[in-house]
Amino acid sequence: MKVTIDKWIGVSTWHWNHAQDEVCGICRVAFDGTCPTCKYPGDDCPLIIGECKHAFHMHCLLKWLTTESSKGLCPMCRRRFKTATE
C-alpha cells in the first residue's frame, strides 16, 4: 500500500514570545488575551516590556502611567518605567 498526503489542515496557536503563561500585572488577563478595552488579541493589543523586565498589556500600562499616582513608576517594582530596547 502506498499512502500520500494530499492536503493537510493543521492547527496552531500563537503566543506572545514573552512570558507565555503569565497574566498582565494590571488587568490580570493573560497576555495572550487582550487588555480589557480591546476585543481581539494580536497586533492591535500588543505587550510592552520594561527595562525591569516586567511586561504588561501596552494599553494597560499606558493608562496606568497617565494617572497621577503612578509617578511614572512600574506598578510591579516601583522603578521608573522605561520600555526595554531589545
Binding site: M1, W8, I9, V11, W14, H18, Q20
Partner: peptide, 20 residues
C-alpha cells in the same frame, strides 16, 4: 508576525490522504 511564537495543536490537525 513579530514577537510571537507558535505551538502546534496536532490533536486537531486533519489530512486528506490518497491511498492505493
Amino acid at each position: 508576525q513579530t514577537g510571537r511564537k507558535i505551538s502546534w495543536r496536532h490533536v486537531l490537525g486533519h489530512c486528506v490522504v490518497k491511498a492505493q
